[in-house]
Amino acid sequence: MQEDKTSAIMTERKPKNIFVQGPIASSFIADSIQKHSSKKEIGGHSIFLGQVRADTINGKKVFSIEYTSYEEMALEKMHRIREDIFIKYPLTCMHVYHSLGKIAAGEICLFVFTSSAHRKAAIDACEETVERLKAELPIWGKESFEDETYQWKENK
């Protein structure tokens, strides 16, 4: 019985690919919002956008971040985070996209989008998803400076 239930949930939500090559375009974000207009049970969306910051480190400015990942593991972990979040919050839907490859300072590298009947669930689920994915997904970022040297970023 228990097993049947679990496998039913697993079939319902298969691991989705979250990775996109290159930056996340604002038109893609706009289209994602537009697509939800047919889901009329939604009363609130929450969106988090991560943007590559031009940090100054030892007097040198970050020019871009090149993201790489252990993709199979990251997708399995993200699937688990998604399952947990859906159990905890009454969400209508959740979408997560993360960039891979070289992303210039000022460009968007993370897009987390949660929707619910009421705002609180959407906002809390969005925040928890962002915090968890930053801590749990095997993703690395190589920060390149304008003089072509680099260093590896580390989440605080």
Binding site: L110, L133, A135, E136, L137, P138, I139, W152, K153, N155
Partner: peptide
């Protein structure tokens, strides 16, 4: 797999 500190997001 050997995983250094994560930096996603």
């Amino acid at each position: 797999a050997l995983l250094p500190p994560y930096a996603g997001g």
